[in-house]
C-alpha cells in the first residue's frame, strides 16, 4: 500500500510505542499525511489526550500540547482563540472523549469551534489495562464489567457521531473504520477532508475511527479486526453524519 511507503513529514522520527497490531499508528499516519498534503505543517498544532495516544505530542512534527484527561477540546479552543491564524486538531480515545470529556466535546462542537477532532473508538480503556469504556458493546467483558456490560444497569454504548449530529453548529462529522485496507483508504479521504475544511476555517470537524485494542481484548490483531467488523460495525454505522460542504445536513 502506498500509505506505508515513506514517513510523512508531519511525523517526527520518534518510534511509536503501540502494541503490535494497534491501529493508533495508522490513525496517526493518516492525519500526518493529510497535514502534509494540505501543506499545513507550519500552521497546524495538535492536542494529545490521556490514553494510549498520550505520547502523540512526541509523534506529530508540529507544536503539540498535552491536555488533562478529556479536556483536549477545551485546550484546543484556547489555542484556536489565541492563535486564530493557526489550525488546531485534537486526537482522543473513547474514554477521554466520550466519558470524562463529554462536556468539552459537546460544547466545543456546539460552539462550532473551528478545530478538527480525531476520535479513536476501540471500545475499551487501553492505557489503563482494559476497563469498560462508554463505547464498550453490550455484554462485552472488560475488567470493570467482568460479567459483561449490563445495559440495564450501565446503559448502551454512546454513539458520538449521532450525538454530535443533533447539534446545529458542527460542519463535518463522519465515522470511518480502520479495519481493512479498503476502509483505511476511505478513512484517508475523510481525514483529508477534515483537515482541508480546517485549513479553510469552515467550522467544527469530527472523524471517528472504529478501531481495535488487541492487547486488552485478548485477541491476535487479525482476530481483533474480525471481531470489530462483526460486533462494532453493526452498532457503530459508518458514514457521513454531517457535511455542510456537500450539503449533508
Amino acid at each position: 500500500m502506498e500509505i506505508i511507503a515513506k514517513r510523512p513529514e508531519a511525523l517526527t522520527k520518534e518510534p511509536f510505542h503501540y502494541c503490535p497490531g494497534c491501529m493508533h499508528g495508522v490513525a496517526h499516519r493518516l492525519i500526518a499525511e493529510a497535514i502534509d498534503e494540505n501543506g499545513l505543517i507550519n500552521q497546524i498544532a495538535g492536542v494529545a489526550p490521556v490514553g494510549c495516544a498520550v505520547f502523540a505530542y512526541k509523534y506529530f512534527n508540529c507544536d503539540m500540547a498535552e491536555a488533562a484527561h478529556g479536556r483536549a477540546p477545551a485546550v484546543a479552543t484556547g489555542i484556536k482563540r489565541a492563535r486564530p491564524d493557526m489550525h488546531i486538531f485534537t486526537y482522543q480515545g473513547d474514554g477521554d472523549l466520550a466519558a470524562i470529556g463529554t462536556a468539552e466535546i459537546v460544547h466545543s462542537a456546539n460552539r462550532g469551534e473551528k478545530i478538527s477532532v480525531f476520535f479513536v473508538n476501540n471500545a475499551i480503556y487501553g492505557m489503563t489495562g482494559g476497563q469498560m469504556a462508554p463505547t464498550t458493546l453490550p455484554n462485552m467483558k472488560t475488567t470493570t464489567s467482568p460479567y459483561g456490560r449490563n445495559v440495564d444497569d450501565i446503559g448502551y454504548p454512546i454513539r458520538m457521531c449521532e450525538l454530535l449530529a443533533t447539534l446545529v453548529a458542527p460542519y463535518y462529522i463522519e465515522r470511518v473504520s480502520l479495519l481493512s485496507p479498503a476502509d483505511i483508504i476511505r478513512a484517508k479521504k475523510a481525514v483529508n477532508k477534515a483537515i482541508r475544511y480546517n485549513k479553510e476555517n469552515r467550522g467544527f470537524t469530527f472523524i471517528e475511527f472504529i478501531s481495535t485494542c488487541p492487547t486488552n481484548w485478548g485477541y491476535e490483531p487479525e482476530q481483533a479486526r474480525q471481531w470489530a467488523k462483526e460486533n462494532m460495525l453493526p452498532f457503530f454505522k459508518l458514514g457521513v453524519y454531517r457535511d455542510k460542504g456537500e450539503g449533508v445536513e
Binding site: A99, Y125, M127, T128, G129, Q131, T143, T144, S145, P146
Partner: peptide, 19 residues
Amino acid sequence: AYPITPQSELIEYMAKMMP
C-alpha cells in the same frame, strides 16, 4: 469510581465483588 493507575485493581475488585 473512575479507572486510573496505580489504583485500578481497587475499582476492578469492586466491579467483581459488589454484585
